[in-house]
Design a protein around this nucleic acid. Structure first.
Lengths: 336, 336
DNA sequence: TTGAAAGCGCTACCAA
DNA sequence: TTGGTAGCGCTTTCAA
């Protein structure tokens, strides 16, 4: 009776008040079998009177599935990941799935702990957004729950993963800079323990080499994907007194920081120095000048994750192709 | 047996393999009662062997609480709300709560639907981040689940709410502009159906009046809190050929858009036009120039929500005071 | 200290 | 078309 007090009704209460068996109410609710018209009507009425809502917990326990997809992100505040999150949600919402989101903060142990929590809550599948867990860890988890990972290369019976071509994106960015006449191109790299960062750096190096431009180690300085690291990196570049006409930043945030460092010293973008980012965050269209950057189709990454997950969970799904990276040319690069 | 196949172990399996009763295993797990040392050791061993993890679903069904807090946000992509989200998570994590996040997109019907879903999943409490539901709707929900709302003024037996002083924040911003010698101040307002937006507008109007500055309706143009609306708003202001030396934007995003409009026309900030925002988003420190804006202590709002929620759920909690708004002066305003 | 068993709210099987 | 009932995995009386 505590349930009556707390205003929560059970299926049994509906049944008894409607003078039918719980089974019948259940059948009515789920359309599992024909229910005679008169009973159907009384049940409907009683449900309404009592404002009855099924207890999804009990349903889940019974059915063995929670209609919930766990998402391991790295930060709740990342505009980057959250764009993908929206994609995931849009993709799975119609099938009745909700998202249970946890963040691992790029720390393998924490990530594993979160996935463990997710599994403990019996999510039907886990979506992993990059991170630092080992492939082995992921494969281990996948014995307990189907996994779709983005920014990883694991594959397994119940594990799907896909990446974007960071290397190619970086090449495209640098190619563009070169096509605009730049030869002295600095790079603010991302953290070396970060796969995407390494690939972007490789793309930078290889493209320079391809064009016979000698690489100058003083031109690449390491950041950590944050605005402040971009600011710092550029300051150190400026102090070191190396000459360069363009900067390729490992991501947009870093580019923002670099932009500010330039602003502080009255160096104009793009008149004095050209700047290219990576990611194409929402706000990169509104920086001054609007940032030329490599667009990551994050929303589509999200829907791709969602669709793959639905497919693994046995839902009919159209193929989920994710478009590639593409350079979006705005106004932060000048032709020299 | 399907559980064995799928690699998921139940408490009964642990019990039988350890040669004890399920009750004993449960007691061991929860420390509910003394368990003899030898049994404890075998149980521990078996749990390890079987890699047993309790089914939280079953626990929740039995205990009547899911250790989950539902959060109704408006957009998964909003840096504004997500900062608060992190605060909520930090506040409740230690007590073992997870967050179930859904977004209502500023649409009362959708919001209600989401809260309904949250309740259906038997969250222990619901945190509401502003939105457009009526107070009555919220109060109705609160008969089924405790609610903490931010940016609302409802109060009820199981409903707590708190706001930030948007009016005061706007006054402070405009006061500052006036103190720097500005008298012709434009305002890009937020959507009129948005309480915060109305308050900020009122603060703008009243502060002007207080200083005997005649209000000029041509100086206020309405946006919708987005960058693009800021851009549009400023363009229309510029086209209308009204004179002004400063802009007070209803939020930072709008300010970004306005900033770009200015940039497009080679109008310098702050040399030619001063600009003040509202919110103090993460990135406002890195715009060029860094944006002077009214800081909203969103993280603290989040922890405030979390702490209030924990208190309602019966956890001992220190008082949860949320600091007020404060102007952060950076470089987008000039003394005229 | 331990076990047997009831029951959380639901679904689905088996009979009728 | 309907009802009775077992059982999902767990916790917690009640007895022993």
């Amino acid at each position: 009776m505590k349930n009556i007090e707390s205003g929560i009704t059970t299926l049994y209460q509906v049944a008894s008040r409607a003078g039918v068996s719980p089974a019948t109410v259940s059948r009515f609710l789920n359309g599992t079998a024909k229910v005679s018209d008169d009973k159907r009507r009384t049940i409907e009425r009683v449900i309404d009177e009592l404002n009855y809502k099924p207890n999804r917990l009990a349903q889940s326990l019974k059915m063995g599935s929670t209609n919930t997809i766990g998402v391991l992100t790295q930060s709740l505040e990342s505009g980057y990941f959250n764009r993908a999150m929206v994609g995931i949600e849009d993709a799975v919402k119609a099938s009745g799935y909700a998202l249970l989101i946890m963040s691992g903060h790029w720390h393998a142990d924490e990530e594993a702990e979160r996935v463990e929590l997710l599994i403990g809550r019996r999510v039907d599948g886990v979506a992993i957004l990059t991170g630092n867990m080992s492939d082995k860890q992921i494969l281990d988890f996948s014995r307990r729950v189907p996994i779709v990972a983005f920014g990883r290369e694991v594959q397994g019976e119940r594990t799907q993963a896909f990446c974007l071509d960071n290397y190619g994106g970086a090449c495209e960015a640098v190619e563009y800079l070169i096509s605009q006449g730049h030869r002295r191109i600095a790079h603010i790299a991302g953290p070396p323990d970060h796969r995407d960062a390494r690939e972007r750096l490789a793309g930078y190096n290889d493209t320079l080499a391809k064009h016979g431009i000698p690489s100058d180690p003083r031109l690449v300085v390491t950041g950590d994907f944050s605005e402040s690291s971009g600011l710092l990196a550029l300051n150190s570049l400026l102090v070191a007194n190396v000459r360069f006409s363009a900067i390729f930043a490992a991501n947009d945030l870093t580019a923002y920081g670099a932009r500010l460092a330039l602003y502080r010293r009255n160096i104009r973008v793009p008149e004095d120095i050209s700047l290219v980012g990576f990611d194409d965050l929402e706000s990169s269209m509104y920086t001054t000048p609007p940032l030329t950057t490599v667009r990551q189709p994050l929303y589509e990454v999200g829907t791709g994750i969602g669709r793959r997950m639905l497919a693994m969970l046995g839902h009919q799904q159209p193929a989920a192709d994710v478009p590639g990276l593409s350079l979006v040319v705005r106004e932060s690069v000048r032709l020299v």
